[in-house]
Nucleic acid binder design. Structure first.
Length: 503
RNA sequence: CGGGGUGUAGCGCAGUCUGGCUAGCGCAUCUGGUUUGGGACCAGAGGGUCGUAGGUUCGAAUCCUAUCACCCCGACCA
């Protein structure tokens, strides 16, 4: 028997990176633009982002934050103030040096009006926001400041991949100021909790919460916490970060306040962010060889109704029946929101229409034809498992919210089982090398998986990690605290971390 | 920035090595017809200064030089 035809070619097993691109194309999420490294996010992809924004924004507000907006341009001198920060971002900054164009005499244009001080396009906003906060903060009574901004940022990347790494991307960045280290650290952890909640309950993507090692930390941070997810090729993807910045930025930018005791003190700051990269994470967590698979809570359309008819008379009847059904379903709610139901009445052949929605990941497809009408029923198919059956309308209405919840939770369970099946504990260099060995002739690896290993020093293991292209993802917050032995050097160790190949 | 590859119709490609009829094919699009619980079939039509700029030649998609863009692999990274 020939292999079943898949809507996406190649399959994940055949060529994972190419499959990823084709899923995006098949679902019409985004495309490359005329600008190198920058993408166009198309309506289906953007509405996914809007749903993410909606969920996250509500959670930010519930934890006491407000939105504000800071400039796209940052004076170059601002970036210079925090040494590690400069080192981390200088290499990937877009720089604005002129403010005017003039004819070049050959029919084109050339920059004119050089700026006295170059501006950089924000790669992140710690510096400009810090400079602003320095003016806002005078007294302990001004604290805490809890602000988030939704923005675009630019990081001039060498190699780009849609959603996962583009030169410009959309994100949110929270920036807070606190009177004490404890309070700032608590904020850092709280926002990691928010990200965890969002990843697991909205995206149905299980994550490991942990702390970054010094080598993987955000430039300028004292502590970086992250959530790490496993993609279907078993590579890790950092899905969100939350940083405790200590007093590094407040010292660099003079964010000082007079305490209750009358002392002038440097404030404690945090920053935290997630980006459109989450869309890449979503794609690689759930999608299959027929295209995108969306968790119901984030799907722009949760249910699509497809009328099926032969002639104009049937068409009118079927459409009327579908419309009634849509109205009935519209009164239902799932996860606190009205169901998002659409009728696809386009004049397309049934098969084409079906695959269109399959590739776009719509969680539930309802097909309604004359036979279903006669039985007061509808044909219901779920995207994640492909299961389908004829269901009486009354039963459909009674069970649809539960069906969506079932899809949502089974996507999570499936992803969790995948991660657990590909997580091992390794205790020797030989095991480590074998686990992460390249597995095709081009030296590419299908990922290996997550490895829990004790290690004594980042410096000791780094050469091996570089050789195998493995990174320390994080030290999980729930990692065993006891004592172990470094898998490489045999030295006593107090730290067990997750090692993996990563995006 | 190094190594490799690709630019020909909206998309995917052949043709390039060995220069030569009017530059083809599949999908998509449009028209007509037949179909209709499923990615349909038949017939016809539209659509290209062959990435760009020079050069060689009677003649260039094809050879030469330059240049640009994109993809893959490294270094960098959310």
């Amino acid at each position: 028997m020939a292999a079943a035809k898949t809507a996406i070619s190649p399959t994940r097993a055949e060529d994972y990176p190419e499959w990823y691109q084709q899923v995006i194309k098949g679902a019409d999420l985004a495309e490359n633009s005329a600008v190198r490294g920058c993408m166009v996010i198309k309506p289906w992809g953007y509405s996914l982002w809007e749903n993410m924004q909606k969920g996250l924004d509500r959670m930010f507000k519930e934890t006491g934050h407000q939105n504000a907006y800071f400039p796209l341009f940052i004076p170059m001198s601002f970036l210079e103030k925090e040494a590690e920060h400069v080192e981390g971002f200088a290499k990937e900054c877009a720089v604005v040096t002129h403010h005017r164009l003039e004819p070049d005499g050959k029919g084109g244009l050339r920059p004119a009006g050089p700026l006295e001080e170059p501006l950089i396009v924000r790669p992140t906003s710690e510096t400009i926001i810090g400079a602003t906060y320095a003016k806002w903060v005078q007294s302990y009574r001004d604290l805490p400041i809890l602000i988030n901004q939704w923005a675009n940022v630019v990081r001039w990347e060498m190699r780009t991949r849609l959603f996962l790494r583009t030169s410009e991307f959309l994100w949110q960045e929270g920036h807070t100021v606190h009177a004490t280290a404890e309070e700032a650290m608590e904020e850092t952890q709280k926002m990691l909790d928010v990200y965890t909640d969002f990843a697991e309950n909205y995206m149905a993507m299980p994550v490991i919460r942990g702390e970054k090692t010094p080598g993987e930390r955000f430039p300028g941070a004292v502590t970086t916490l992250s959530i790490e997810a496993m993609m279907q090729d078993r590579k890790a993807l950092q899905a969100g970060t939350s940083h405790f910045l200590g007093q590094n930025f407040s010292k660099a930018q003079e964010i000082k306040f007079q305490s209750q005791a009358g002392q002038i003190e440097y404030a404690w700051t945090t920053s935290w962010g997630v980006s459109t990269r989450l869309i890449g994470a979503l794609i690689m967590t759930h999608s299959d060889d027929d295209g995108l698979v969306l968790p119901p809570r984030l799907a722009p359309t949760q249910i699509v109704i497809m009328p099926i008819y032969r002639d104009e008379n049937q068409k009118a009847e079927v459409l009327a029946y579908c419309d009634t059904l849509r109205k009935q379903l519209g009164t239902l709610s799932y996860a606190g929101e009205s169901l998002r139901v659409e009728i696809d009445a386009r004049d397309l052949r049934g098969g084409e229409k079906k695959w269109y929605h399959v590739k776009r990941g719509v969680p539930v497809r309802i097909e309604v034809g004359p036979k279903d009408m006669a039985n007061n029923a509808a044909f219901v198919a779920r995207r994640d498992t492909g299961e389908s059956k004829s269901t009486p309308v009354a039963e459909l209405i009674a069970t649809l919210p539960a069906l969506l919840e079932n899809i949502q939770s089974s996507l999570f369970q499936k992803a969790l089982a995948m991660r657990e099946a590909n997580t091992v504990e390794l205790n020797s260099e030989a095991e480590f090398r074998d686990y992460f060995k390249p597995d095709d002739e081009q030296g590419r690896s299908s990922g290996g998986g997550f490895a829990k290993c004790w290690f004594a020093s980042e410096q000791d293991v780094q050469p091996l990690l570089d050789e195998l292209k493995v990174t320390i993802r994080c030290i999980p917050l729930d990692a065993p605290k006891g004592s172990g032995t470094c898998f490489l050097t045999g030295k006593p160790s107090t730290t067990q971390a997750i090692f993996a190949k990563a995006y």
